[in-house]
């Protein structure tokens, strides 16, 4: 019977995490903080992938990479942006300050297909905390500018105050050949940008639709509206990528709680090509 079984790259207990040090903490918006985590050793992680962050005694949460990682002098520096939601994120955002430890294991998931995007126009559509996993794409395109076509960045939040990374949004707009469009669900004093849903902005972008990729992340309702609008403008199903969210307990395809149709979001996603999930996305509760 032995011969039937094959362990793919199985070495040790994959639940074992590394111990990371919080070296900086930045408040992005009410209840949203960016953590700079430092730990020994090299750690390869791609935009769109995520890590499981562990708080002692409480549990783990999947959190996306929110900036390109830095490897230097034998250590890794990662950025993760966390919004306070429930049991564990509350303990992270309210409890963990600079100098605290946190457990980290990963990287998990597939990441955004940036190689495939080379030579094409890029459109980014992000809502709320969904902007965090999209941010490393912006940084990557900025660094490797000549590899990509035009970039449109569409970001939305409930109110201007809730928008993360306010301090660097101007820089996104200043990237060569890039247009930044912002939106707030509710009007506010001094807000000169769009009021309404971020998906409204899809009608305003100027791209070569036939040679484009679109990266979308946000609440699922927003992503569905985005898909409808994008298809309406003639984008191809294969060119639209969504980063999905599901309850996640393990991150490695064994706990079964992140299933979406026949996919395990943690392992087969979280980034999906729309054409691959078309049958599921519109079925309530699948």
């Amino acid at each position: 019977m032995k011969v039937e079984l094959q362990k793919d790259n199985y070495t040790a207990n994959p639940f074992v995490f590394r111990k990371a040090l919080v070296v900086n903490k930045v408040e992005e918006a009410p209840g949203i903080y960016t953590y700079f985590l430092k730990f020994d050793g090299e750690f390869k992680i791609l935009p769109g992938q995520f890590n499981m962050l562990y708080v002692y005694g409480l549990g783990e949460v999947p959190i996306s990479l929110s900036n390109l990682p830095i490897f230097r002098n034998g250590y890794t520096l990662l950025e993760h942006t966390v919004r306070v939601m429930g049991a564990v994120t509350k303990a992270i955002t309210l409890g963990l300050g600079i100098g605290s430890f946190i457990g980290i294991r990963g990287p998990y998931g597939n990441g955004w297909p940036l190689k495939d995007a080379e030579g094409r126009d890029i459109t980014i559509v992000g809502g709320g905390i969904g902007i965090a996993p999209l941010r490393p794409i912006i940084k990557y395109v900025e660094r490797e500018r000549e590899k990509f076509g035009r970039m449109n960045i569409l970001l939305g939040a409930r109110t201007p105050r809730d928008m993360p990374y306010k301090y660097e949004l101007d820089k996104y707009g200043a990237i060569l050949n890039t247009k930044l469009l912002l939106s707030s669900d509710t009007p506010a004093d001094g807000w000169v940008h769009h009021v309404g849903f971020v998906t409204d902005l899809i009608n305003n972008i100027d791209v070569n639709i036939k040679n484009s990729v679109v990266f979308v992340c946000g609440p699922e309702v927003m992503m569905r509206v985005a898909v409808k609008k994008l298809l309406g403008r003639g984008f191809r199903k294969e060119d639209i990528y969504l980063s999905l969210e599901r309850r996640m307990r393990c991150g490695i395809g064994v706990c079964g709680t992140c299933q979406f149709g026949h996919y395990f979001v943690c392992r087969d996603g979280p980034v999906f090509r729309y054409s691959d999930i078309e049958d599921y996305l519109w079925v309530e509760g699948i």
Binding site: V55, G57, L58, A87, A91, G95
Partner: peptide, 11 residues
């Protein structure tokens, strides 16, 4: 115990 760590039991 969990409240003392700044969190709550996962429901």
């Amino acid at each position: 115990r969990k409240y003392a760590f700044g969190g709550l039991p996962i429901a």
